[in-house]
Design a protein around this nucleic acid. Structure first.
Lengths: 197, 197
DNA sequence: TATTGAACAATAATCATTTTTTGTACATTT
DNA sequence: AAATGTACAAAAAATGATTATTGTTCAATA
């Protein structure tokens, strides 16, 4: 079975990659608001006109950068998931990878520089939709393994997993401490097996 | 069984209520940023000094207003819950009440005037913690009725319910359409009964 | 004794102005 | 063909002077 890829843009185009790399670097350093197309052009050593050929607006470019970030996250997670067996283990792993990215990656910088922007993203349905297609396959595997009820609507479970995982990444501790892998694993194991014993 | 109250401040103090009412009215109209202590004093027909006697800072006052809003939400929900039997029905109701508040109430105004502020609240653990103590009682009832596994950790389930409900209030539609009571009810019914048939 | 209102320095918001950036067009270069 | 660089009007952001707000204190008032 070939490893799935979560792509949308043609990342083999070196010009496109240069734009995205430069843009990402700028966002890391200055945040989205304080990053200008001219600055991105300077950092990427290309012309402003070229950027506008690939992305019609700054908004579209930012969207492209976030998109790639999320796709990269999904691809790295997917690669690691091969070692995990149960759905609870998979979701645990995805949350841990997400939290690490949120500390060290672009979103982490954004959280420090422009927390309101990050908070707004978190309320944006598009942000969630990009992750939705990741889960159905794994949910079906869990159903085939008898891990969860085979009658359950796969898309509903995927929706719940995305909501829960996003919440656990963005708000790691509220009432219960869900910091360690073990605590998370236990939490998800219980949540994904709710119902009569 | 007496109906529970979710209180913290002494709402029998008319001065306190006048401050909170005036503050809430200002936030509804202008948002948090554009509301000043002087304006609240004017609207509430009291002195700025009095406000500072009750709330040391503007931040504390805003916290008090939000607190009362959430407590009011919980009290109204609690009252309505008496008609609902299953946990899925109760959570459905809470989400529907929450969504209505989010459209018509103070948070709705805030969503229009200062969306970033509302988004930041949604990432604040305190916002969640205020709702956490609401659920354990109902979860135990569901366990007693054999609706969910009696072995499950009550606090963990409460945590999940709060995360899921908050997400469904703030992001009503992502992949699946969860707009109607019926769709929500079915979603939650399946989610709260995850596990082998 | 609680509330008021005035004074105050430090901080933050506002506003008009200047500067930068955006998005588009097009002639030039590679 | 694709990328560059310049020009341009409209929109947005940085700037700095000005005004308002915050949080504290305290004497006056109810």
């Amino acid at each position: 079975m070939p490893r799935r890829q979560f792509n949308a843009l043609d990342y083999s185009d070196p010009m496109l990659v240069r734009i995205l790399d430069a843009g990402e670097q700028c966002i890391r350093r200055f945040g989205i608001r304080r990053t200008s197309m001219g600055e991105i052009a300077r950092v990427g050593k290309l012309s402003r006109g070229s950027i506008y050929r690939y992305f019609g607006t700054k908004e579209a470019l930012v969207e492209g950068i976030i998109r790639r970030q999320q796709q990269d996250f999904l691809n790295r997670t997917e690669a690691k998931l091969e070692q995990e067996s149960s759905l609870a283990d998979k979701v645990t792993l995805a949350i841990l990878v997400g939290r690490k990215d949120m500390q060290e990656g672009m979103f982490g910088s954004l959280a420090e520089i422009e927390p309101e922007t990050l908070a707004m993203m978190f309320l944006d349905p598009r942000f969630y939709r990009r992750s939705l297609s990741f889960w159905p396959q794994h949910i079906r595997m869990a159903q085939a393994a008898g891990e969860i009820d085979a009658e359950l609507d796969v898309d509903l479970v995927a929706d719940m997993v995305v909501r829960l995982a996003a919440s656990l990444v963005m708000v790691p501790r509220m009432g219960v401490q869900l910091k360690t892998r073990k605590a998370l694993r236990q939490y998800l194991q219980q949540m994904l097996k709710l119902g009569p014993a």
